[in-house]
Amino acid sequence: MISISQNNLLGSNPCKLLFIIICFNISNNIDARPISWSGGSTIMYKSNFMMTSYYYHYSPSYKYSLGLEYIDDKHFDEKYVNFRTTYLLNRINTDNSQGNLYLTGSLSSESSSHYNYGFHGDWETRRIFTSFSFIDKNTNVRDYNESELQLGIAPYKGEYNDLHTWIMLKSKRDTINDQWDTYPFIKLFKGDFLIEIGTDNSHWDIHYMMRF
């Protein structure tokens, strides 16, 4: 398990903090494609029972993205802005698949002890999508971490410019609730627009994304 204590992190070495900001990306969830093409921008809206977020990121290169995220944290009743960055550690392209491994990190406007870092990876073909993530979250209230797994199947192979559909299963666990929460969702995208809608029968997960 990745764990850096607040004291160790901030102790007397701001370089460590800077290192985390630059090298590790912080995210609140797995984002589909956290880095765009070189020069590309992405706007995201995400809402679930823990928080609502509005996120914009820009990718100066295909290797990393920089962004700002406004978060309404329902669980801890906080509102703040995150500076987020994601770095592509490795990408494997084959004829029929693509795999990615990312480092991610964020620093909150709330305080210097409010930050996240972690990693996530994905692998997909035109029929199958899998991903995982682990995020260590440090807040003013308490520190915890989140793990997430996703598995998806495309019922048909859409061509370029078609409406694409994915039937997905998401499994999440955080150390606050300390239990795996598994539920289905649907991912739809066409052109520059993507939406994910899911529910565990007690709350909705909604994720909207636009690229330009």
């Binding site: 494609r33 494997i92 693509q98 035109r126 690229r211």
Partner: peptide, 10 residues
């Protein structure tokens, strides 16, 4: 690696 429409938009 061109497996996803959304990722090939660029």
């Amino acid at each position: 690696g061109m497996v996803c429409d959304f990722c090939a938009r660029g």
